[in-house]
Computed example of a mutant assay.
Amino acid sequence: MTYTGVVTTGGPADVRETSGLTISKVSVGTIDNNAYLLRCRATGEQLLIDAAADPRTLLALAGDGGLASIVTTHQHWDHWIALAEVAEATGARTYAGRDDVDGIKARIDVPVDDGDTVRVGEVELTARHLVGHSPGSIALVYRDPEGIPHLFTGDSLFPGGIGNTEQDPVRFASLLKDVEEKIFGELPDETWFYPGHGGDSTLGAERPKLPEWRERGW
């Protein structure tokens, strides 16, 4: 079946195969948080992005393969409320942006800085620090050597705009600058991105809207 990125809470995962990773997307919790399971196709090692809610669903998604790692994209509670339970059940190593660690009420083993590498099996993911939605928000970039790049953005980039900066002009300017420079400035239009809520998009579909986002201020 063709991957669409459209999932519903309580519904099945949408699964995508790349050369190095199997990507499974589910929606969990009361505000439709997305969680992503990345499985290295060569080794079977698995990494979860955002233990957002519903640990039973997340543990079932991981299955017998367990979890080696859990990455939390930012400190807002709806993205880590199941982290402690899932990490305890699996023994997974936990990661989050350095400037958000103190805001996450669960164990974080590895603080992450801009440009750091997080591995899942033989696959490398590059962290990009995007300041504005939260102080330590990170996105993860997977550059598929045989296909398009894949980008996991948390709540920093969505189809239609950057993440919520609560009408703070300083935070808005910071996040837009980081997204423009570190995401749109470095990745091609065919890059597929996976946000923390809702459907996916590509950078090419969103790039023409950047002037509109800047003008409207959110």
Rank of each mutant, 00 (worst) to 15 (best):
D64G: 14
T165G: 07
C40M: 02
L125N: 01
V112F: 03
P145M: 01
H129Y: 00
R41N: 10
E17C: 00
I148H: 12
P159H: 07
I49S: 00
K25T: 15
L48R: 01
A13G: 02
T9L: 08
A13M: 09
A92F: 09
L61P: 01
G66I: 06
D109E: 14
G132D: 07
P195A: 11
P211S: 06
L48Q: 03
R143I: 08
G198R: 12
G63I: 03
A127I: 08
V7H: 06
G132H: 00
Y3T: 12
E181D: 12
T90A: 05
G185F: 08
G163D: 01
D102V: 15
D78Y: 02
V7T: 11
H76E: 15
V15P: 05
E215N: 05
T191L: 03
P111K: 13
L175Y: 05
Y142T: 04
T73S: 11
T90G: 11
L151A: 04
L176K: 04
D100N: 08
P195L: 11
A84K: 09
R207G: 02
R93A: 05
D116G: 04
R41C: 03
E166M: 14
A89Y: 00
E88V: 00
W213T: 01
T30C: 00
H76A: 14
I70R: 04
N164I: 12
D64H: 11
A53Y: 07
S27T: 13
S137E: 04
H150Y: 12
I104N: 05
V112Y: 07
L48W: 00
G5E: 07
K105L: 15
A139L: 04
T22I: 04
P145C: 03
G115F: 10
T18S: 13
D32Y: 13
G204K: 06
T72M: 10
L48K: 09
V71R: 09
K25N: 09
G161F: 06
D64T: 14
P149T: 04
G44E: 10
T4Y: 07
L140C: 02
G132Q: 02
F158L: 05
L140W: 01
E85Q: 15
Y194E: 12
H197S: 08
I49E: 03
G204T: 02
D116C: 09
G199V: 14
D32H: 15
A42R: 15
V170Y: 06
P55F: 10
A52R: 06
T191W: 01
A42L: 14
K209Y: 15
L130V: 12
S24I: 02
